Simulated assay, not measured.
Amino acid sequence: MREQGLVKKEVWIRPEHAKRLSVIEKQLRKSSVSTWVNTGDVVMGNANESMTVWTTGSLYEALLNKPLFSEGLASVELIDGVEPSLLVVMKEYGDLPVFVTVAGEQIIAESVLWSKDEVTDVAGFNDAVLRTHKYFPLSTISLDAMPDGQDYYHMFGALSATSLLDNIVFEIEVLATNVIQATEAYGEFLASPVDS
């Protein structure tokens, strides 16, 4: 190890964090840290680089300057509340709404697909989703209760709250593409025909 230029450091941690420390130790053995190592409120990357953990408000401000939004391909609105979120309207995708929320250590980007009541064969649809959702990169499908008391299928993707801004924009774009493809792929299970 010394011949590789590494130095030995002794650390004291709680036993339940041993696996996490092992992962971080392996990352720090590389000559350049290619992944972000979380050290609290600030995330350290390559030498002397740092990034603050995103909040919904800081993410909103940063997204305004990205070409997707500054060139009018999408719009973003900050929705204040107990848990603030962002409403992204993807204009290239028929004004598809995507909601983005920073919750603790993760960022969730999600879009409503349709209500459970619109599915003609719920068991068949659920089986099809479980067998095929892996074909939609970076996204998955969930069934969630909404305030109106109905269950709705959502497609979502999750990232670390320390993700690079370009990766967050990429996640939003991929999610929009996946929603359109899922609507086409699962249209046979819906009561109303889906326009392609």
Rank of each mutant, 00 (worst) to 15 (best):
75 S>E: 15
103 A>K: 08
150 Q>W: 04
137 P>T: 01
133 H>Q: 14
135 Y>W: 13
154 H>K: 15
76 V>T: 12
183 T>C: 10
22 S>T: 02
148 D>N: 15
96 L>W: 11
18 A>Y: 03
61 E>S: 08
130 L>V: 09
49 E>K: 06
81 G>D: 08
128 A>L: 09
31 S>M: 07
127 D>H: 13
149 G>E: 02
61 E>K: 10
48 N>T: 09
113 L>N: 00
56 T>L: 04
137 P>K: 13
58 S>G: 08
135 Y>E: 15
83 E>K: 15
123 A>C: 00
52 T>H: 14
79 I>N: 10
2 R>E: 10
155 M>H: 00
73 L>D: 07
92 E>V: 05
138 L>E: 11
116 K>Q: 12
159 L>Q: 06
8 K>I: 12
73 L>W: 00
130 L>W: 02
59 L>F: 10
99 F>A: 09
46 N>R: 15
149 G>M: 04
161 A>P: 09
177 T>E: 01
164 L>G: 02
183 T>H: 13
16 E>L: 08
104 G>L: 11
95 D>G: 06
11 V>R: 01
19 K>S: 07
113 L>M: 12
179 V>C: 01
148 D>H: 02
74 A>E: 07
149 G>L: 09
186 Y>D: 02
37 V>R: 03
145 A>N: 06
169 V>R: 12
36 W>E: 06
138 L>K: 12
4 Q>K: 13
164 L>T: 05
108 I>R: 08
21 L>S: 02
118 E>T: 06
128 A>W: 06
81 G>R: 08
101 T>K: 03
186 Y>K: 00
32 S>Y: 03
163 S>A: 15
149 G>S: 10
103 A>W: 02
79 I>G: 00
25 E>V: 11
186 Y>L: 03
122 V>L: 14
45 G>W: 03
6 L>I: 06
42 V>Q: 11
112 V>R: 02
120 T>K: 10
15 P>A: 07
154 H>M: 14
1 M>D: 00
16 E>C: 09
23 V>E: 05
38 N>R: 07
121 D>V: 04
16 E>M: 10
85 S>V: 09
72 G>M: 01
113 L>W: 08
25 E>G: 05
183 T>Q: 13
80 D>Y: 11
63 L>A: 12
172 I>M: 12
87 L>P: 05
89 V>W: 02
175 L>N: 10
